[in-house]
Amino acid sequence: MVINIFLMLIIVFAILSIQSNSLRRAVIYLGILSLVSSFCYLLYGSPDVAIAQAVIGSTLSTILYLVALKKYKLFTIYYVLQNTDTEELDSDNTERKVIDIIESFCFERELEPDVVHTSENLENIEAHYQYDVIVLQKERGICLYGNKENYLLDSLQKHLVKKLGNKLNVSYVQNTV
């Protein structure tokens, strides 16, 4: 009798995790599912498998899924101001405009923008930091540096060109690594 209730609970949580709207909630439902299934293993008389299922199914994989969701959402932007006299460069508020546009792009895609302003070298940032896109401000125009595997960069460049028009010169460099 008890085992039937828990087996039905497994089906209920499986359907819930498929039908839920947000991914995060689906991951939590999957964690509960594997906990219930580990209890079923226990009732069927295999505590060994139940421990393994409880540890791996409901703890490790849930945390890995949650970290993956968090990673997918974060969009790290490094804004590089190479010249030391930044005030002169930034007289027409280019920086603010560009960052606003990138943030609106992130808002459309349900990403969380994370803007970091630096004055470090480009090579240094590429070597030592995790970035999604590096925006390099030049005298006239900006330059986007990005990883080749990042599939969002093409659409980001289109978005920037569409919003900025011809006021700024947007160029785009892909790194091989």
Partner: peptide, 17 residues
């Protein structure tokens, strides 16, 4: 008793997590 190397090792790695 139930358990063993694999399950205990997974629990040990939970420390780092």
């Amino acid at each position: 008793t139930p358990g063993g190397g694999f399950q205990g090792g997974a629990l040990l790695s939970a420390i780092f997590i």
